[in-house]
Amino acid sequence: MSSADYLTTKQVLLPHLQVALNLYLLSYKLTLQPQLNVSWCQKKDGEFTYVWAIALQLSTAQKIPAIQIATKIIGMINTQAIADDIRQKLATENLACSTLIAIRATPSGLIYLELTDCAIAAWLQYSIANPPKIEKYCLQKNKTLLPFILQYTHARCYSVLQLAAREGIIPPVLTSISFLDSQQQLLCRHAAEQALIKQLLVTSDNLYAPNAHLKPHWQKIAVALCQSWQTFYAYCQIWGEVKRNNLDLARVRLGLTLLTQRLLAVLLNDKLGIYAPTEL
């Protein structure tokens, strides 16, 4: 599948980071060609934050403190242009938020690029409306050495969505969900929900915006997504009281289930070469 068919937050960010890097190199008349890559912050307080270590790379070559380089590069990143790109490329509805990304440097010189709730909601809504395509559907129902959790989770997600459609909570073909509340904050605030969203972002980046110098371990990525959804489903109720009293939240959780099922289908079919079952 071509990366042009499906966008990730990383794909939106990278061109703007490249512009800032080019400006910095030009300003110092440097002929270096450092690798342009960002990774997800693993800290608990940075759930939706990318880390860019470019200043550390340049510090070695320039023999100046990384924090000094990071500060200058941050001044060259056009956050308004990034926000406009998020609105144009990802948002399927108007975003009332004025801030979509916050950027800061750590004392060590790492650059943190934090996506706000509105930016995350834009990507989630985009992903609901624009499902990733599967290149090759596999009919091989069993494959040795693959964990059972992979096919089980795909089938479980599918059955949850089918039940929700039969009960009228969501339409049979789901194309739109509002992930923000009236205060423009994500409706999904539970730690398990946030962890699943993070894993969905990580998975989509690995699929459609991978690091050119690292080969993804697809089985490990798929298992991590399955485990995140299993934890989410154990702690984040959809039925019962939530369905009765907070239908918007129930629909948001079903949206996260749909995105999990879709990405798992791509991983199973295209990357692991195995059938993605709808029932077991």
Results as ranks from 00 to 15, higher is better:
276 A>I: 04
201 L>Y: 09
184 Q>H: 14
15 P>S: 07
186 L>E: 10
241 E>R: 09
146 L>W: 08
106 T>N: 08
189 R>H: 14
149 I>L: 03
109 G>I: 14
55 A>H: 02
80 Q>S: 12
32 L>C: 07
42 Q>H: 06
199 Q>R: 05
100 L>K: 02
69 I>D: 10
242 V>I: 15
264 L>T: 03
173 V>I: 13
187 L>N: 13
230 Q>I: 10
133 K>D: 08
274 I>F: 09
201 L>G: 08
190 H>E: 11
28 Y>T: 14
240 G>T: 10
171 P>R: 10
273 G>V: 00
174 L>I: 07
196 L>C: 02
123 W>C: 03
158 Y>D: 12
50 Y>R: 00
210 P>E: 06
136 K>S: 07
156 R>P: 03
260 T>Q: 01
52 W>C: 10
53 A>M: 09
90 L>W: 04
122 A>T: 01
188 C>N: 09
42 Q>L: 13
261 Q>P: 01
215 K>D: 08
36 L>I: 14
101 I>Q: 01
190 H>Y: 04
138 C>W: 04
74 I>N: 04
1 M>F: 08
244 R>Y: 08
32 L>K: 04
79 T>M: 10
103 I>E: 08
17 L>N: 07
250 A>H: 13
55 A>N: 07
266 V>W: 12
177 I>T: 07
124 L>M: 05
216 P>L: 12
274 I>N: 05
124 L>G: 05
13 L>C: 03
205 D>S: 07
80 Q>D: 15
83 A>V: 08
156 R>E: 15
17 L>M: 11
27 S>R: 11
90 L>F: 01
168 G>E: 02
206 N>D: 14
242 V>N: 05
49 T>R: 10
31 T>N: 12
197 I>N: 00
199 Q>K: 14
147 P>N: 05
260 T>Y: 06
199 Q>E: 14
7 L>Q: 09
242 V>T: 15
124 L>I: 00
53 A>C: 07
239 W>A: 13
54 I>P: 07
28 Y>G: 08
141 K>I: 12
81 A>T: 11
207 L>F: 02
161 L>D: 05
69 I>S: 02
62 Q>D: 07
84 D>W: 00
227 Q>Y: 04
149 I>Q: 02
247 L>S: 13
222 A>H: 03
61 A>K: 04
40 W>M: 14
190 H>D: 09
52 W>K: 00
79 T>G: 09
59 S>M: 04
276 A>W: 05
263 L>D: 00
9 T>Q: 08
